[in-house]
Design a protein around this nucleic acid. Structure first.
Length: 899
RNA sequence: GGGAGUAUAGCUCAGCUGGUUCAGAGCAUCUGCCUUACAAGCAGAGGGUCAUAGGUUCGAAUCCUGUUACUCCCACCA
């Protein structure tokens, strides 16, 4: 066979991916085997692959491929998420470029554009996953807005409404003025920002007289215009909505204000001074302006003190007519302008610098969220917290790393109701139908799957017995995207629409979930809720939380920093296998990962190593008539044991999701143990044939190694596996059986470690004396104590090119010498030996050993140690003592001999 | 403000219930080698008061307490 010197990754990748899909190796159907199931965290349908996806999906693919090879019926279900806000924003943006405004379109027209966009850009990310080698069952590709999923969402909404768990309520919610929709509390991220505290003068209303109360520490402001109080605020633009000023009743500074009224600056509205212990006396001036319509805390104050609510903002964040001033201006502009106007009016005392935390939309980082009072749909979360907490606390679901259990519990124990409605069109439209009502009358609605059913329900409402279907007004709002994602593990198997069907029974609960900790609340927790609610069982057994991919300086990867490499380019540069390895090499279990291109290089170098080992083995000619060399026989026995031990260790690591470590383990197995030790032990001399038995064993080992490596680096392993032996059409490493860990002899492995030590020392002597490998040496062994272990001598002979390797009774003078275990080794080099140098070395070792002996003796002479420590520990120390004494004796003899 | 986590070699990390995996791995560095599988390589070497101060113990990287630094999550004082 003609083997190219270089491995052509690109050709191999497309060839084998096609081969796998052509043979439907990724497909899964329920059968008699045990299932292994992963559902993909659905990426945004219009998204592109980033480094986080690379990591996440590499891990999922490793788990899936390994399970498949372990004999499970492995299924990895792919799909995409409609990502309501993000996608709608993109579509709006695109339309804006064409001069089309969303508000000029009907819902149907807009959705037509949105679907076009989805068809055009959707699925790119799935193609990219294919390049990564993802072994998803593509025939099952789902979309959160496809028919089955949509139907599931509707059914669940109606069901939860009927159970009384979904309700409609007027609440202070987080409003995104750019997307013009409400957000859930989880969708708001707070950022520290350099801001200002504006100190504003609120004059006491005309006619009010001030009498100091005489309280110690009282602060009364007065100027030529009268008495005034100072309010510190970060948001002067909201003063038009002020309906009270609030002080702490215990605040000594402001006792004089009690019971008075003050005038809102510029607006000139007279508002009461109210008292509430909520106000922090120490913060700012201790005076708080209360704007019930635009701050959650102020709203709560307004409720207790029965304050008027003046909403001064339009949905887009501009000032509404109710604000009276600055009508039509954007809130941020108003903030600047009002500061100037206040100053000019002498109403601004000062401006202080202040670090403030401002909420932003998670999906829309440049627009500050505005607290706003409006009517929305909510899901009662108390019930869901109650059913979702036990499975995690009891260990029915395991989190890796475990620390997230705390995070999870904390969230569930302090949960707030979930605002599930969004003022968007791209999404699942809420199946609620409003009944016609008179102006000012309370709203009435029914919830049903179809307009027809809604009409039936409406007819049962008193006074609506005769309305027609046209009079029903369906709610314009869509549902939060996560309201469909939370059903994912159930809806993918149609478990909502067709409970108890064959697929849901077989695949549910799924096995592992791989995702980022950033969506533990958004998604993981809610899937557990939905799973428990609808399947009465957990949606998955294990959740593996990946870290966040950072650059090597520890910064988050972001578009704006430009420190995020393009995954596709990486795969082209380092090969897909190389990048997969690179991702995994830097992902410690439970920590963030500091990504560096160097790691992909290391990965690519590894595939090259495999390729070269393959070239070596495949280059051998086999002669069944020559006897098997002793060295080969022993090396095979050793490697067999080594392999079994490693396989056992590997199994353990996978149980604990220690994937990065597992890769390092097999990396070393292949590179060090197999290539450097095993192959060098069995390698025939140049252009000499290899015996049949050794060849067969070597191929078998190689085979197994490839199989073990396949989940990590699927392409090169398939390529080499296919070439290593004649394979039948339709065979593939990805459906081969994963080698099982057999028994192994720990003692034998330890003995071989000594062998490595001896070989290394002889190599050192060669190097020190400039002796080429071609030049053969003689080596003599002298037993110091115990039994002589010559089991692997043939291996030593082979590695070190020894012409003679014998056991002798007495020391040899004037030879290079070293001690390993209980044997002294002598290598006569004639006059080449440098006595001075040798003595120096031996003396140094002698000194060290004596020091070591002293420390052991000290320990053993400590009676408290001897009596307190377990017998086994004491025995070990005694053994150390004996070994050291023996070694000292041997060294002393050698030194004497040299002299 | 509440909580969680981390601190071990230049870098990234292992080191579980204290004692032979006790000071380790990979990468990087340095020194030899173009030795017919592989220079994208081979053979070696150096490098750490285990953040810090105490404590428990015969014995601590490991357990406990304090301190410091960093990271993350939650809450949100205008």
């Amino acid at each position: 066979m003609d083997i190219p010197a270089k491995y052509d990754a690109a050709a191999s990748e497309s060839k084998w991916y096609k081969y796998w899909t052509d043979n439907n190796f990724f497909g899964s159907k329920p059968d008699g085997r045990k299932p292994y199931t992963i559902v993909i965290p659905p990426p945004n349908v219009t998204g592109v692959l980033h480094m986080g996806h690379m990591l996440n999906n590499t891990i999922q693919d490793i788990l899936t491929r390994r399970a498949r090879m372990k004999g499970f019926n492995a299924l990895w279900v792919p799909g995409t998420d409609h990502a309501s806000i993000a996608t709608e924003a993109k579509v709006v943006q695109k339309l804006a470029k064409q001069g089309i405004k969303k508000r000029d379109l009907t819902r149907e027209q807009f959705l037509k554009y949105a679907w076009e966009w989805k068809e055009e850009h959707g699925g790119v990310i799935l193609e990219q996953l294919k390049k990564l080698g993802a072994s998803c069952d593509w025939s099952r590709t789902a979309f959160t807005m496809d028919d089955l999923r949509s139907e599931s969402v509707m059914k669940v909404f109606v069901d939860l409404y009927n159970k009384g768990l979904i309700y409609r309520g007027l609440r202070m919610v987080n409003w995104d003025p750019k997307a013009q929709t409400v957000l859930s509390t989880e969708e708001v991220i707070y950022r520290e920002e350099k801001s200002h505290l504006y100190h504003l003068k609120y004059y006491i209303a005309e006619g009010e007289t001030i009498t100091p109360t005489g309280t110690e520490g009282e602060v009364i402001h007065k100027d030529d215009k009268g008495y005034y109080a100072v309010v510190a605020t970060t948001r002067p633009e909201t003063i038009m909505g002020d309906t009270a000023m609030c002080i702490n009743p215990k605040d000594p500074k402001h006792q004089w204000l009690r019971g008075h009224k003050v005038i809102v600056p510029l607006v000139n509205r007279v508002i009461p001074v109210i008292e509430d212990r909520y106000v922090d006396i120490e913060f700012g001036t201790g005076c708080l302006k209360v704007t019930p319509a635009h701050d959650a805390n102020d709203y709560a104050l307004g409720q207790t003190h029965n304050l008027e609510v003046i909403d001064i903002f339009n949905p887009d964040g501009t000032i509404a007519p109710a604000g009276q001033l600055y009508v039509g201006m954007d809130r941020m502009e108003v903030r600047k302008q009002i500061a100037i106007d206040l100053k000019n009016a002498g109403l601004l005392e000062k401006i202080e610098d202040y670090d403030n935390k401002v909420g932003y939309s998670e999906r829309n980082a440049d627009t500050a969220v505005e607290p706003r009072l409006c009517k929305q749909w909510f899901l009662n979360m108390k019930h869901f917290a109650d059913i979702a907490l036990p499975p995690v606390l009891e260990g029915k679901i395991k989190f890796y790393p475990n620390k997230y259990v705390n995070t999870y519990r904390n969230w569930l124990e302090n949960i707030q109701d979930w605002c599930i409605s969004r003022q968007l069109w791209w999404g699942h439209r809420i199946p609620a139908y409003f009944l016609p009502t008179a102006e000012g009358e309370e709203e009435k609605y029914v919830v049903a799957l179809t307009p027809e059913e809604a009409l039936e329900l409406a007819h049962k409402v008193k006074g609506y017995e005769n309305i027609t279907i046209d009079q029903l007004q369906r709610d314009e709002d869509a549902l939060d995207t996560w309201f469909s994602s939370w059903l994912w593990p159930v809806s993918l198997f149609n478990g909502i629409n067709q409970p108890g069907n064959e697929e849901i029974k077989y695949y549910y609960p799924t096995t592992d979930l791989v995702t980022g900790p950033d969506i533990i609340f958004f998604w993981v927790a809610r899937m557990i809720m939905a799973g428990e609610e609808y399947m009465k069982d957990v949606p998955f057994r294990n959740v593996y939380f990946t870290g966040i991919v950072r650059d090597k300086l520890g910064r988050k990867m972001s578009k704006s920093l430009g420190n995020s490499p393009d995954p596709i380019e990486l795969m082209e540069k380092y090969s897909t296998d190389g990048v997969r390895m690179g991702m995994l090499l830097c992902s410690p279990a439970g920590g963030d990962l500091l990504y560096d291109d160097e790691l992909c290089l290391q990965g690519r170098n590894f595939t090259n190593k495999i390729w070269n080992a393959f070239r070596l083995v495949k280059g051998w000619s086999v002669d069944d008539n020559i006897p098997q060399p002793e060295a080969s026989k022993k090396a095979i026995e050793w490697f067999e044991n080594k392999l079994n031990k490693t396989l056992a260790e590997l199994d353990k690591m996978f149980v604990d999701f220690r994937l990065s470590e597992s890769l390092m383990l097999v990396y070393k197995l292949f590179w060090d143990e197999f290539s450097s030790w095993y192959l060098e032990s069995v390698k025939p001399a140049y252009q000499q044939p290899i015996d049949g038995a050794t060849y067969k064993a070597t191929i078998a080992f190689f085979d197994k190694l490839l199989e073990v490596l396949h989940p990590y680096i699927p392409f090169i392993t398939e390529e080499v596996w296919q070439l290593l032996e004649t394979r039948k059409q339709g065979e593939s490493i990805m459906v081969a059986q994963m080698p099982e860990a057999g028994s192994y002899d720990e003692k034998l492995l330890e003995r071989f470690e000594t062998v490595k030590d001896v070989i290394a020392k002889i190599r050192q002597i060669r190097q020190d004396n400039g002796l080429a490998q071609k030049e053969s040496l003689e080596c003599f062994a002298k037993l110091v104590d115990g039994d002589y272990d010559d089991y692997f001598n043939a291996v030593i002979t082979k590695h070190c090119n020894l012409a003679k390797f014998e056991l002798i009774p007495a020391a040899i003078d004037g030879a290079k010498t070293f001690v390993a275990k209980n044997v002294e080794y002598y290598i006569p080099l004639g006059d080449k030996i440098d006595k001075e140098e040798e003595l120096k070395k031996l003396n140094a070792e002698l000194d060290y050993t004596r020091g070591f002996l002293a420390s052991v003796e000290k320990k053993l002479s400590n009676e408290r140690f001897v009596s307190g420590a377990p017998a086994a520990v004491v025995d070990r120390e005694k053994q150390k003592l004996a070994d050291a004494k023996m070694k000292i004796e041997a060294l002393e003899k050698q030194i004497a001999g040299l002299k």
